[in-house]
Design a protein around this nucleic acid. Structure first.
Lengths: 204, 204
DNA sequence: ACCTGAACACCGTTCAAGT
DNA sequence: ACCTGAACACCGTTCAAGT
């Protein structure tokens, strides 16, 4: 199996700046040109270094995009985790609504980036990153609903899995269909209702 | 904009066989090796023709994969459309359950193919095919729920959009997470409940 | 009417040579 | 310790030449 992590850590100020420049260039090319036009030459050119330098810090092109996607996923996951921690102990309806709203808003704040990264994340082998992020979302949500004073679930894990699969999967469909902000707002309202009414149906 | 349709129609028996061989070879390589290892040379070799021949019938590699994905989507869409037509006039719970079950089963019957094509369909520019299929699913479902004797919806189109986004999006998440048949069966049960309880919440 | 395959352009990756 | 860029392997696509 190939090593997908960055190749070495910068030890001097110069190389740290280089890594940063390469990382930024990758984001810029990705958002401006899309994954299809992201070539190592283009990234290196934009970063102002040679291709060879790029390969000193990233073992291959895929690692570049993985780094960008990883940071993006982290940002979304942490927003949801913070929300879930804050809502511990609240009643079901409040917990459910906060979770759904926070997730959709985290995706919406930079909708163009979301769209570009959805496209990129499918092209390359990033299933591991996506499922790791999904697992963290799942855990945070499970803890949240576990702590609801007005709800007991027989099989919490499975119920939460379905909620999160719907929420993340449907959100992806909406972004990939190129929804307008109005459609997104409408979608958000319906997802609030859908998740809550499902959770109520599962409550014992 | 590039022309993405097949380049010409076969006019003689020989060329018809050639197209068929290329099409089959594409499916075989896609399922056996994945989209990452699908090269024009490999497909041509497997089909027993030269690359040049391939380019007589398909303008580029993407068109090969599009053709395969198109046929697959058609199969799923038609299964759902048939189901929706059959269930016209049934009560909400029966209609909803039939729709959800039919969709998930259509995806499950050839789970490996579903997985391979989910991966492929993200790599290439097939958003148009996917959204065309989604639109047909949406229409069929809207007609179905419109005709439910025990349910009236204020904004049918939007309600159905959310149901179908959840159903298709969540199913994708489940397949991409490499779910076992047992997990799939469990997921199916929960989606039945989720879609139905949401529809009930929206009913006037 | 259909097929071939060498040739071309382009891209990811490497590595000997530089500072 | 870090950077360069020519060189290599591989892939998508074309087109003059064949049957």
């Amino acid at each position: 199996l190939a090593d997908l992590s960055p190749r070495k850590s910068p030890r001097q100020a110069r190389s740290e700046a280089t890594v940063h420049a390469i990382f930024d260039a990758t984001i810029q090319v990705l958002l401006a040109q899309g994954i299809g036009r992201l070539t190592t030459t283009r990234v290196a050119e934009r970063a102002g270094v040679s291709v060879g330098t790029m390969y000193q810090y990233f073992p291959h092109k895929e690692a570049l995009v993985r780094a960008v996607i990883e940071r993006y996923l982290k940002q979304v996951v942490e927003a949801v985790e913070t929300c879930c921690a804050d809502m511990i102990g609240h009643p079901l309806v409040a917990a459910s609504n906060a979770l759904v709203s926070t997730y959709i808003e985290a995706k919406s704040t930079d909708a163009d980036a979301s769209r570009a990264l959805y496209a990129a994340s499918s092209e390359l082998e990033v299933a591991d990153l996506v499922s790791a992020a999904f697992r963290r979302l799942h855990s945070a949500a499970a803890r949240l609903f576990q702590a609801c004073p007005d709800a007991q679930f027989d099989d919490l894990e499975d119920v939460v899995f379905s909620v999160m699969a719907s929420l993340t999967g449907a959100t992806r469909v909406v972004f990939e269909s190129g929804a307008t902000p109005e459609m997104l707002a409408d979608f958000r309202k319906r997802m609030l209702l859908m998740c809550h009414s499902f959770l109520v149906s599962c409550r014992e």
